[in-house]
Amino acid sequence: HNLTITQGKLFFHYNPKLCLSEIHKMEEVSGTKGRQERNDIALKTNGDQASCENELLKFSYIRTSFDKILLRWEPYWPPDFRDLLGFMLFYKEAPYQNVTEFDGQDACGSNSWTVVDIDPPLRSNDPKSQNHPGWLMRGLKPWTQYAIFVKTLVTFSDERRTYGAKSDIIYVQTDATNPSVPLDPISVSNSSSQIILKWKPPSDPNGNITHYLVFWERQAEDSELFELDYCLKGLKLPSRTWSPPFESEDSQKHNQSEYEDSAGECCSCPKTDSQILKELEESSFRKTFEDYLHNVVFVPRKTSSGTGAEDPRPSRKRRSLGDVGNVTVAVPTVAAFPNTSSTSVPTSPEEHRPFEKVVNKESLVISGLRHFTGYRIELQACNQDTPEERCSVAAYVSARTMPEAKADDIVGPVTHEIFENNVVHLMWQEPKEPNGLIVLYEVSYRRYGDEELHLCVSRKHFALERGCRLRGLSPGNYSVRIRATSLAGNGSWTEPTYFYVTDYLDVPSNIA
C-alpha cells in the first residue's frame, strides 16, 4: 500500500525493539523526510534493546553428524571492536523451508527459537588472519532439518551509529543413524509349514526405512522333555500350542467401542483428552525405555581390526524358502538304536541362519518350516543398504507352526516275539517326523474274553527296548493296539495285532 503524509511529521519514542533503520525507511515511504526535528525521533529510546544489523554474515563451514552440527561463519568486528559482546545463534526444527525470524513471537518477546549466546573469538592483530567464530550444536535429532541463523550482539553506541551483522536463515539436516526397533511384532501360524509375521514401523526411523531383515531359527525343545518319565503317576503330560491366527481386521481397528449394538453396526467412541494424553505418555515412556535398553543392555560386537582377528559373527547367506525346513542338525536320541526319531534339535552355532529381506511392506510369510516346531524370529529395521547396512537392534518374537495331521501315527506293522515265561516283546517304529517329539506310547492289549488293559511306555523305555515287553501273560489269544502321544496330543491307534500265548508248562520236552 502507498502511504503519503502531505502535512505533519513523524514522532517515535520509547520503541526499544524498533531499529532506527526501520524508522528511516518509514520517513522515505511516507514522504516526511526532512520535516522531523532532532528530538522527534529519539536516538536513545528507539532500538536500544534490539540488534540492528546492516551487514550480512556468511557461514564459512558446515559439518553434520547424526546428532551434531558444527558451524563456522566469517569474522565480524565493528569499528570499535570492544562493542562486540558476542553472537546469538538461533535454531529450531523446520520440516519445511518457510521459516521466518519472527515465527511464534508474542507480545512478551518470546519466540519459538532456541538461542545460544556465543563469546567472540580472540581478536588477531592481523586483519587478514582473524579467527572464524563458530559453535557445535549438540543433542539434535537424527535425520531432522533445522533452520539456523546467527547475528551479532553489540553494545549501545553513544554516537548512535547503527552497526551489526546478521546471516540469512539456512537449512541444515542432520545425518541418518540406526533406527529404533520395529514396533509390535506379531507372529502367527496359518499352516503346519508357515508363519505369518506382521509389525509396525519404528517410532524413530532416523532416516528413510529402506528394508527390513527377518531372521528365523528353529528352537530346540526343553531338555526336561527328553529326561522326564511322563508315565509316572502324578506327572502331567506336557503340551505345546501353536500360535493362533490373526483376529479379523475389524476387531483390530483402534479407537473402536468394545460393545456392539445388537441391531447392527455401531460407531466408534472418540477417545477423551485424558485417554489420548495417557497414550502419549505411555508411548514416550516406551521410547525412553527402549533407548535405555539399547544403550545399557546391548553391547556392540567388536569388529575385526587390522591384526587379522576374525569377526566372530557368522556370515549372512541367503537361502531359498524351500530350504528352511531342514535348518537344524538332527541327532538321534540314543545312538545305539537307529530307529528312534531325530527330534532332539541342538543347533550348531556355526550354522548360517536363513533370512529374508523385506522391502516396502511390514509383513512376511515364512514358508518351508517344520510342522509343530518353535521358531525364534528376529526382526531388524534398516535405513541404508549400501555401502553397508545400517540397521536397528533386533526385536524378537516366537511362534510355533501348526501340527501336521497323521504325523504322530505309527507307520509300519507292530511285530512281536514270544519268549519263555510268557513274555512277549512288542516292537514298532517311532514316527519319523512327529509333531514336536514323542513323549510316550500307549499300549492297549486284551486277552479274548477279558477286559482291555493299558500300559504306558516312556520315551526312554522305548529307546532301550525298541518297544516294550509284556510279562506274566496268561495263555490265550491276544490283540494289541499302540498309539503315540506327542507334544500336540495323541496320534491314531494302530491296526490290531494278534498273537497267541501258550502255557509254557505244557511245552513238550526233548528229553527222552
Rank of each mutant, 00 (worst) to 15 (best):
S458L: 06
R376M: 01
Q380M: 15
Y375M: 15
Y478F: 07
R400Q: 03
Y448K: 12
H371Q: 12
G322L: 12
Q252L: 12
L464N: 15
K302F: 04
T340E: 14
L470T: 02
T343G: 11
Y259H: 05
E217V: 13
H416D: 10
K317D: 06
R353E: 09
Y445L: 14
H461Q: 10
K233P: 15
V327R: 12
V299L: 09
P312T: 13
D311M: 06
F298K: 00
L437F: 13
Q429K: 15
S315P: 10
S274P: 04
A381Y: 05
R483S: 05
L364M: 09
V345I: 08
Y478D: 00
E404T: 07
K287I: 03
S239T: 14
E351Y: 15
T288V: 12
I377L: 13
I410M: 11
E310I: 06
V424E: 01
L321M: 11
D229G: 04
K357P: 12
T343Y: 12
E249A: 07
V331T: 11
D450H: 10
V397L: 15
E258L: 11
A394N: 08
E356V: 11
F226V: 06
R218K: 05
I410R: 02
R400E: 06
H371E: 08
L455H: 12
K236D: 05
Y292W: 06
E442H: 09
S458E: 04
R400L: 10
T343A: 13
T340A: 08
P314I: 03
K271L: 07
E388N: 05
Y478L: 01
S363H: 08
C468N: 00
K278T: 09
L277V: 06
S486Y: 03
R376T: 10
V359C: 13
S274N: 05
N422L: 05
Y441R: 02
Y292D: 03
V439L: 13
I209Y: 00
H352F: 14
F355A: 12
V501N: 06
W242F: 07
M427L: 09
Y478P: 02
R466Q: 06
V329L: 09
G234P: 09
S257P: 08
L237S: 05
E260P: 12
P496M: 03
G449Q: 09
S315E: 11
R466S: 09
N435M: 01
Y504L: 11
D450Q: 13
V214P: 01
G449K: 09
S304V: 08
C231H: 03
K278F: 07
R481S: 13
V334E: 07
H352C: 04
D503A: 09
I276Y: 07
V345C: 13
S223L: 09
G489A: 05
H294N: 01
G436D: 06
R459C: 04
T373R: 07
D503Q: 13
D409I: 10
L455N: 13
R319M: 09
S251F: 06
E452M: 05
N360M: 08
F246V: 12
V423R: 15
S239K: 15
V423Y: 07
G264W: 09
F289Q: 02
N435S: 10
L437P: 09
L487H: 01
L225Q: 05
G322M: 13
P244G: 15
G476R: 01
K432C: 09
E249V: 11
N421D: 03
P354S: 12
E404P: 11
L280T: 10
D291A: 03
R483K: 11
K406S: 09
Y445I: 02
P349Q: 04
N360L: 10
L225D: 14
T272A: 05
C269M: 09
P475T: 11
N421K: 13
V297F: 03
S486D: 01
S444P: 00
Q275C: 09
S474W: 14
E495C: 13
V439G: 12
M427T: 11
S392L: 00
S251G: 13
K233E: 13
E351D: 13
E442P: 00
Q219S: 09
H425L: 11
C267F: 05
R218L: 13
P434H: 05
M427R: 10
V297P: 02
E290C: 02
S458I: 07
S305H: 08
T340D: 11
S344R: 13
V365W: 06
V480S: 03
E260I: 03
F298V: 02
V345N: 11
S479I: 11
V480H: 00
S283G: 03
I377P: 03
Q256N: 08
V297G: 02
N490G: 13
S274F: 09
C468K: 10
K302M: 06
R469K: 07
V365K: 02
R459H: 15
V439A: 15
Q256Y: 08
N383H: 08
G322D: 15
K236Y: 07
S341A: 04
L237D: 10
R481H: 01
N490I: 15
T347V: 04
D311C: 07
P205R: 13
A394P: 08
S320Q: 04
L440Q: 06
T288H: 01
P238K: 03
D229N: 13
N208F: 06
S262Y: 11
T502F: 13
E260T: 08
T307I: 04
K460Y: 06
E356C: 12
K302S: 06
Y478Q: 09
T272E: 04
E265T: 14
V345Y: 11
G472V: 13
V345P: 15
K236C: 15
K302N: 11
V334M: 08
P312V: 13
S248A: 10
V296T: 07
